[in-house]
Simulated scan of single mutants.
Amino acid sequence: MNAKSIKLFFFLCLITNILLISNIASAQVSVVESAFETAESKGFSGVLLLAIDGKVVFEKATGYRSYEQKIPLLTTDIFEMASVSKQFTAMMVMMCQEKGLLEYSDNADKYLNIPYKGITIKQLLTHTNGLPDYQAVMDKHWDKNKVADNQAILEYLRKYHPPMLAEPGEKYEYSNTAYVFLASIVEKVTGRDFIDLSREWIFKPLGMKDTDIRTLEEKAKVSNFAAGHIKNKNGEYVNANKFHDSDYTVWLGNRKGPGRISSTAEDLLIWDQALYNGTQVSEKTLKSAFSPQSLNDCTLSYYGFGWDLGKDELLGKIVSHTGDNPGYKTLIMRFIDQNKTLILLNNNYHEANTELVESAVAALKGF
């Protein structure tokens, strides 16, 4: 075979491989399309985004931004992130650590006037702290005609002093209280407002133009804010904020740390990709955030710093987080060994959510 024939052979092989890859990708997109259409037919309202190496391979919206006004949902609409916010709070703590403002081994009561002693910042980050649920205390005692902030939450924990649920480091137990403490610690060590600092350190530098920690009044002024919806007694979807007493996002509307970030699917992809390039913290710091934690009995807890940790046989290491608010169900899944991303934002807390995620993960395995 002469040189010209060899070149032609390799060129034909290259074209064949490109066509094969293109066909595989097209087939996987079809799988997701079908799953999305099924969810749509069942009444799902939300946005699904899939990306590989930071490039969107599927993005679609269905349902309504507002059911009452019948405003169709767009992929650019802004959703409440709920507990997906915790990874941002954890990042603020990690940035403070790298700046020498705190250590993970520091006890929380070094910085905060709280009745719970011997709990480290690391145990706050990893939900291994044993703290009681602040929401239960506020639900029982707080005047829901007022809007609580972190200072009020700390005051009520001191006043009513609910007991610890476990010894620090004894076990994993999800703790919103811990992330209220973390945001308050960031404010203490920086002397700055947590919201202003989040904008300055994360949202603005990364170009997350639609991401913020908004008050109820600020959210009302955002024209493309996708309201969370739940069904009324007639089975009709209505704005979740109308159920005032049960909607803690209203009367706990000024809390910082465990929730309250609102964002878009595409802004979350910007955030996802920034975690690969070291613009926020060092690779060493991020590695610790994605590592399981050793408990007092030397068993491991698979929650890092604001991230659930998992592994898939084909996709490799997974770091993910869900978020639940009245009317909302959110998810970011990062398959960090392969730089694949799944983002799902749902604003009518629909049961089709789970099946759609399963289909999307299956499709990502085929890309």
Rank of each mutant, 00 (worst) to 15 (best):
K256H: 09
I332G: 09
D312T: 12
K7Y: 05
I332T: 13
N353V: 00
G304P: 08
T62R: 01
T62C: 01
T341I: 00
L14C: 13
A220Q: 10
K242A: 11
L314Y: 13
T89A: 07
L19T: 12
E351G: 04
Y237R: 11
K219S: 03
G54M: 00
F79L: 04
K221S: 14
E103S: 13
Y174F: 03
L295Q: 05
E313G: 15
K287D: 13
Y134G: 09
G207F: 09
K209E: 14
L342P: 01
E98P: 01
S359K: 13
N129I: 00
W271A: 08
E68R: 14
I261S: 03
T177K: 02
A226D: 04
K117P: 11
G130C: 02
L206S: 01
A227R: 15
D196C: 07
K242T: 11
T75D: 12
Y349W: 15
G228F: 08
R260D: 15
N176V: 06
Q87Y: 02
N239C: 09
L8F: 13
E200D: 11
N346P: 04
I71E: 07
T89G: 08
T211Q: 04
Q280W: 13
L101E: 12
T62K: 08
S22V: 12
G310W: 05
T285C: 06
I261G: 06
M95D: 05
T264Q: 06
A82I: 07
Y349F: 15
I270R: 11
E358D: 14
R158G: 12
V29Y: 00
P72A: 04
V31F: 05
K110H: 07
A136G: 09
I6R: 14
R260F: 15
N254F: 12
D139H: 13
K159Y: 04
L102I: 09
H244M: 08
E167Y: 14
F243W: 06
N277G: 02
H127P: 13
I52L: 02
V137N: 06
D312I: 05
P205E: 06
Q69N: 04
I21F: 03
I213T: 07
K60I: 09
K55N: 13
W201L: 13
W271F: 10
G310V: 08
M138Q: 10
N347P: 04
K122F: 11
S45I: 08
K256N: 01
Y237P: 08
A289C: 06
I261K: 07
A39G: 11
D245R: 07
L269P: 03
F335S: 00
F11N: 10
Q87H: 11
K231G: 05
L49M: 12
I343V: 15
P326Q: 08
Y237F: 15
H321R: 08
T126M: 11
G253S: 07
N296W: 10
S246N: 15
R260P: 05
G306K: 03
S198R: 03
L19A: 13
K55V: 07
G43N: 05
S246L: 14
Y328T: 09
G46F: 01
R158S: 15
V32Y: 00
F225M: 07
D324R: 15
A352Y: 09
G306S: 02
T215L: 00
K7L: 14
E351A: 04
S301F: 07
L157F: 04
W307P: 05
D133R: 07
I318M: 07
P132L: 00
P258K: 09
